[in-house]
Simulated scan of single mutants.
Amino acid sequence: MTATPTRGQLERTLSQRIQALYREQLGHQPSKVTCQLFDEKLAIVLEDSITPPEQLLANSGQEELAKQVRADLSKAIEPQLRELIKEVLGVEVLDLLSDGKIDTGRTGTIAVLGATPTVRDPASTPKAKRQGEEN
C-alpha cells in the first residue's frame, strides 16, 4: 500500500515533472519550477522559461513575434501539462490560465482543479523521516 503523499511531496513531484516536460517537448529546461497548491487551485511559476529562439526574436527587435511564439508554445504544451497535473494530483484540471513575460523570462500558470487533491498531513509522519525527506 502506498502512503498518501504530503502537499509538499506533490508540489515537488509536479515541479520536477513539469521541468522534464519542458525539456523533452521544447528542448529547453526552465532553471526553476515552483508549484503551490491552494485547495482546488494550483499556481505554477517557471523561471528562465523563454526558449533560445524566443530570446533571439526578442533581442532582434521582434518582440511581438516572440510573444506570439510564446503563446503558441503554451497552447501546444497545454494538453500534456493538463494530463501531467491530473496524473500527479489525481484530479481533473478544469481550466489552465497561463502567461509568459519575455523580458523577465518567467511564465505563470494557474490550474483550476475539479477537486482538492488528497494529501497527508505532514504532522502524521515521524519527525526523523520528515527531516530525511527535506534533504
Rank of each mutant, 00 (worst) to 15 (best):
G27N: 13
E24D: 15
S60N: 10
S15N: 08
S74C: 05
L37Y: 01
R82A: 09
D99Q: 11
I110M: 12
Q9Y: 03
L37C: 10
Q29C: 11
G114E: 13
E11I: 01
I50A: 11
L97G: 07
L26D: 02
A111H: 00
S124H: 06
E64M: 12
T13Y: 01
T109P: 00
V33R: 02
V119W: 02
Y22V: 06
A3I: 10
D48C: 09
T2A: 15
Q25G: 09
Q131N: 11
A115N: 09
I18S: 00
L113P: 01
Q16P: 00
D121A: 12
I50V: 15
L42N: 01
L73Y: 01
P5C: 13
V112I: 12
E11H: 02
D95C: 03
E87S: 09
D121R: 08
T109V: 10
K41L: 15
A3C: 08
A43S: 13
D39A: 15
S15F: 00
L42H: 01
Q68S: 07
T109W: 00
S60Q: 09
V33I: 15
K101D: 09
G8I: 02
V93K: 04
T109L: 07
G27V: 11
T4P: 02
G132R: 08
Q19T: 10
A3R: 15
G61F: 04
T51E: 01
L81R: 04
P122H: 09
G27Q: 12
T13Q: 13
T6R: 06
A115C: 05
T118Y: 06
R12C: 10
A58Y: 02
L89E: 00
A76Y: 01
S74V: 03
E87F: 05
A71C: 05
L113N: 01
R17C: 05
Q16G: 08
K41V: 15
F38H: 14
T2K: 12
P126V: 13
G114S: 10
L113W: 03
A115H: 06
R17V: 04
K127I: 13
D72I: 00
P79G: 03
L21V: 08
A3T: 12
P122W: 03
Q62C: 05
L10Q: 02
A71Q: 10
V33C: 05
H28N: 14
P126Q: 12
L57Q: 04
A128G: 11
L42P: 00
I77Y: 00
L81H: 02
A128E: 14
Q29G: 14
R17L: 10
P122D: 07
S98Y: 02
A111V: 01
P30C: 11
T104E: 05
E24L: 15
Q55P: 01
R70K: 06
A66H: 02
T34A: 14
D121Y: 09
L10F: 03
T107V: 12
E24Q: 15
T13M: 07
A20C: 07
Q131C: 11
L89A: 00
R23V: 07
P79Q: 05
G61L: 04
T107C: 05
T118M: 08
A43K: 12
E134N: 14
I85W: 00
P30S: 13
Q55Y: 05
E63F: 06
A58E: 02
M1L: 10
T13D: 08
D95I: 00
L84G: 02
R23Q: 15
I110G: 06
R120C: 04
I85L: 05
L42C: 04
L81P: 00
Q9D: 13
I44T: 04
K101L: 07
S124Q: 13
Q68E: 11
T125H: 06
T34Y: 05
G61W: 05
